[in-house]
Nucleic acid binder design. Structure first.
Lengths: 158, 158
DNA sequence: TATTGTTATACTCTATAACTATA
DNA sequence: TATAGTTATAGAGTATAACAATA
């Protein structure tokens, strides 16, 4: 228990005060934490979280409208346009303007896009199912459950 | 149940697939949600979440070293420098370089900084204690508890 | 040599508003 | 008139690396 050890454990007690009970503050920290882990584990796979989530949702909802996608992912319209254009440039996503309503854009994955997601989805789910250090599996599942409630997501079908 | 209503409820069912169980994804959405609420409620009070959290932690830990503060808030050193300089320019924070170790910077709130925090802390805690729509108070507290665990925060004294 | 903070640079993300085309 | 998407612009946030001062 020498000075070096004390320093390395970064054992400086910091009183967070009112922030300890702030959902917003805690979620911000938690997200930074989980993203740090994410990049450490998945960085080499060339999947940025935002873009990859777009690809996953399109793969699960072929033909989804760009605006619906943006709403669900809480991405602004101006931003989703740039993301989708970028993914289109990479040959991962196809845009289609239907005759019924020529204002909207319907999105699907290309063959290449499907392959891209298929190659990486297992790595992601393995990462996501890992139980965070210091938590039990039950607590981890409970956390997911409460986040669903917080977000107003209906529970999964069985 | 006409077309207008359906559209307004944005009831487009989107299958989130593997993302439903992704802590990272859920936390990202949750944080966007809570920040949206935050700005809606506290925007007029001139408190950006990042800067205000810095002020609160300094107020609770007078003389805290800049690096310790950055670690606890998961802010990069280069970034905390800019933030603290900005807060100093606003007259809210004072920097002090102690003789014992002239590499470090110790932070305190100025009189103005203390007043700034004191004027706003009640609005923040009121906001933070609100129970999110669709959740019970117990669930909200449980969520906070699980986030503490996830972040490795020791439980509050009593 | 290692640590703390600073500076400079660039890149990502996001916000806003004006614009188009379609309905 | 309202909606979906686009474009342009600016700003905030963040990452990186090189640097100076101090230990």
């Amino acid at each position: 228990m020498d000075a070096t050890l004390v320093r390395e454990t970064a054992g400086d007690h910091v009183d967070l005060g009112e922030l300890r009970d702030s959902l917003g503050f805690l979620m911000r920290l938690a997200q930074l934490q989980v993203f740090e882990n994410y990049f450490a584990a998945l960085g080499p796979y060339d999947m940025r979280p935002g873009e990859f989530s777009v690809l996953v949702v399109i793969s699960r909802n072929p033909g989804i409208r760009q605006g619906v996608l943006a709403n669900r992912l809480m991405i602004k319209r101006a931003h989703i346009t740039k993301m989708v254009r970028g993914l289109e440039d990479q040959g991962l996503v196809a845009r289609r303007i239907p005759d019924e309503d020529r204002r909207v854009v319907e999105l699907t994955l290309t063959k290449k896009g499907n392959a891209f997601v298929a190659e990486r989805i297992d790595v992601l789910t393995t990462f996501d199912r890992a139980v965070p250090e210091g938590m039990t599996r039950k607590e981890r599942d409970q956390l997911v459950h409460l986040l669903h409630k917080f977000l107003g997501l209906t529970e999964a079908s069985a």
